[in-house]
């Protein structure tokens, strides 16, 4: 039995929306970062399956995915470094602790 394209696209969209929801509602920065990862991974799934199913002749989507994974890793590393810096100052990683700038 062949698995259709839609069976990949819908779960990846759900994954993306879960990430979106998590990013907007979570208070813990690490959890927010995990939500962001979910969103980025949904993008990766989309690119690979679209390439595999609709345009099997080229490798453009696969290559894009490889780069997107590398970029996501760099983003996470930098975000974690900044969160650790913040943790050193406030001893917390909740967003409520980082809300002094306003006006």
């Amino acid at each position: 039995m062949e698995i259709k394209l839609l069976y990949y696209l819908v779960p990846s969209l759900i994954m993306f929306c879960c990430g979106l929801y998590g990013f907007l509602t979570r208070k813990n920065m690490i959890a927010m970062l995990i939500s962001l990862e979910l969103m980025l991974n949904a993008v990766d799934i989309n690119f690979t399956v679209i390439n595999r199913y609709i345009f099997p002749d080229s490798k453009e989507g696969m290559i894009f995915t490889l780069f997107a994974i590398a970029i996501a890793a760099a983003e996470t590393a930098l975000a974690i470094a900044i969160i650790i810096n913040l943790y050193r100052v406030t001893k917390k990683v909740e967003t409520d602790e980082a809300s002094q700038l306003k006006g």
Binding site: M32, I82, I83, N85, Q100, L101
Partner: peptide
Amino acid sequence: YESHEAAIKYIL
């Protein structure tokens, strides 16, 4: 402290 808070908001 402000610098860190700004950075975390920017990166996210």
